[in-house]
Amino acid sequence: MAILEVKNLKAYYITHKYGRSSTVRAVDGVSFEVNKNEIYGIAGESGCGKSTLLKAVSGLVKPPLQILDGEVSYNFSDESLNILSLNDDRQRRRLRGVRISLIPQGSMSVLNPVRRIRKSFEDVVYAHLDVSESEFEEMVRDHLQALGLDWTVMHTYPHQLSGGMRQRITIALSTILRPDIIFADEPTTALDVVVQRGVVQLIKKIKEEQQNTLILVTHDMSIHANLCDRLAVMYAGEIVEEGDVQTLFSNPKHPYTSMLLNSLPRVGDSSPRASAPGAPPSLVDPPPGCRFHPRCPFAMERCRKEAPLLRDVGNRHRVACFLQEGGQ
């Protein structure tokens, strides 16, 4: 059975200002399943709703974000629960701290700038485990060592460390309690390529050692190619294509996935390359029909009026595009 099942999830930002209300349909009817031990990637351009999806799925919902519809269920070996129906705050905090762990976008936000790194580790460990100081030290020392980090970082403040080192520490901190599921939001973005590779290496190592499930959000298709088993591509609040990563890269079926892949320059290739046309739409007032139609080179009459459903085209490859239904 899938460890995580998401059905028809709708998460909107609803704000009221000067007597007017505005709704950003950031996650708009998303369904997917993640298997135990899998690395599941979520791709798509900036603003398409990736972070919002992670927040909603991991139960970090606070105004103006609201869940309007859907189900999010976790099936761990010893319990199953639906996170949206947990009304006990303590239960939700336990789930979030111990069973699932979110590495949020922007590593600075997790590490408190005025506290030494050691304090951050103490906060996380003591909040969930009843351990002595020496047990705490042993646990952290082992974990840091397994990840190739030096114990001396425990005495430093975040600003004394490079961005790459901070990101590695954030990852160590989020995995110290050996969660069943790790959600990582853009863990490699804005890092240089060597540090990025170090972070990918670190994530692989943790997964191997702790045998957990990883859900990885990034707009960087190359990182997905390097890490993921399966990949979902989001566009304007919806999943438009999903499949195993080999298939998606070698045989993309949604025109948006093709556009994302074709826009990538490569070392060794300086032949002229056109920029992708247009920009993603506003989620306050998304286009009718297929949300991609204004940028799609294949858009047909039907695409302007009707919204295509995400359908299985075989081999657990799902695509939301009328071209897959023979056009008309």
């Binding site: 170090g198 990918v200 298709m221 190359s222 190619a225 390097n226 080999q246 490569r266």
Partner: peptide
């Protein structure tokens, strides 16, 4: 530089800075 190609993944570990 990560290749946008799942058949071309990093296999060797590097020494971290």
């Amino acid at each position: 530089v990560p290749a946008p190609d799942p058949r071309d993944r990093w296999t060797e570990d590097i020494a971290l800075s």
